[in-house]
């Protein structure tokens, strides 16, 4: 039987990859993808705990979370489209009007 630790470690690794990508990638679309990675790492956690506790609630919420991720992705891409329309690019490094 696979120990719970493996699932959690997988989730942590995926989350860290997402984090790394989010911190380093410039393109808005790639950053959104990284966010999705992090979200799904959380989903893995949810399902893993759900299974190992014999309680289906976590899996139900993983489903909900996937649905919300879809919503978030839709909004994210819509925002990126707006930015693209205004600035002709989606390089989030250059979107720094809020700086000092």
């Amino acid at each position: 039987m696979i120990p719970l630790f493996y699932y959690l470690a997988l989730s942590a690794i995926i989350f860290s990859i997402g984090l790394f990508g989010f911190m380093t990638q410039r393109s808005g679309i790639r950053m959104l993808m990284c966010v999705e990675l992090m979200l799904n790492a959380a989903n893995i956690n949810l399902v893993a705990f759900s299974s190992y506790n014999g309680d289906l609630t976590g899996q139900v919420f993983a489903l909900y979370s996937i649905a919300l991720a879809a919503a978030e992705a839709a909004i994210g891409f819509a925002i990126l489209m707006s930015i693209y329309r205004v600035r002709d690019m989606i390089d989030l490094n250059k979107i720094n009007v809020l700086r000092w």
């Binding site: 630790f5 989350f15 860290s16 790394f20 911190m23 380093t24 506790n53």
Partner: peptide, 25 residues
């Protein structure tokens, strides 16, 4: 910089998970 931070974070999380006693069936 991003890599160092990500690895640091990963290490912390892995260590935390590893040293936690999970209550499972």
């Amino acid at each position: 910089a991003g890599m160092i931070v990500a690895i640091l974070f990963l290490a912390i999380v892995i260590i935390s998970i590893g040293f936690t006693n999970w209550n499972t069936v």
